[in-house]
Simulated scan of single mutants.
Amino acid sequence: MPIELPKPIADYVEANACLDVDGMLEPFTRDAVILDNGKRFEGQAELRQLFENEVIPVRAIFTPAAVRQENGQVVAEGPAHGDFKGSPIRFTYRFTLEHDAIRALEITL
């Protein structure tokens, strides 16, 4: 049974699966924040740098295996696989949505 994700998250996951940077950026608000294992990226320019410098080169693709609502966030857990040490690694993605867009994303192990 496929996991049902809110549209902006589903769009992000789909674009990530294709390693499409523009598609990955599209569901985020202009001033969105990503906290990626302690590193903070804010705004479209920094998110683009994150995707272009840390996601695309290692072909990191996140595949949600479980999703739940928790404290107003959508929490997706699952493996990320790619050309990086330890692949696949299980991650937790905590999405904060605002007006049908991703306002914040916290990525942790």
Rank of each mutant, 00 (worst) to 15 (best):
F51Q: 03
E70R: 12
R59F: 00
L47Q: 01
I107D: 01
E77F: 04
Q69H: 13
D11A: 12
V13W: 03
E14D: 09
P64M: 07
E46G: 08
N71Y: 04
P57Y: 02
I34V: 14
V13G: 04
R94F: 10
G43H: 07
N37D: 13
F91D: 01
D31M: 09
R94Q: 11
E26H: 14
G82E: 02
G86P: 07
Q73F: 05
L50K: 14
P2A: 11
F91V: 08
L109F: 13
P88V: 02
I34H: 02
A17V: 05
G43L: 07
G78N: 08
V75I: 15
A15H: 09
I107K: 04
P88Q: 02
D36N: 15
F84N: 05
Q44L: 14
S87Y: 00
P64A: 10
Q73N: 13
A65I: 00
R40Y: 06
P6R: 08
I56E: 01
R94M: 10
K85L: 13
A66T: 12
D100A: 00
E46V: 10
F28W: 02
E54C: 04
M1T: 11
I34L: 10
I34Q: 12
L25V: 09
T108S: 15
D100T: 00
R30V: 13
R30L: 10
I3K: 13
F41D: 00
P2L: 06
D100V: 03
G43Q: 10
L47Y: 01
R103S: 11
C18D: 15
K85D: 14
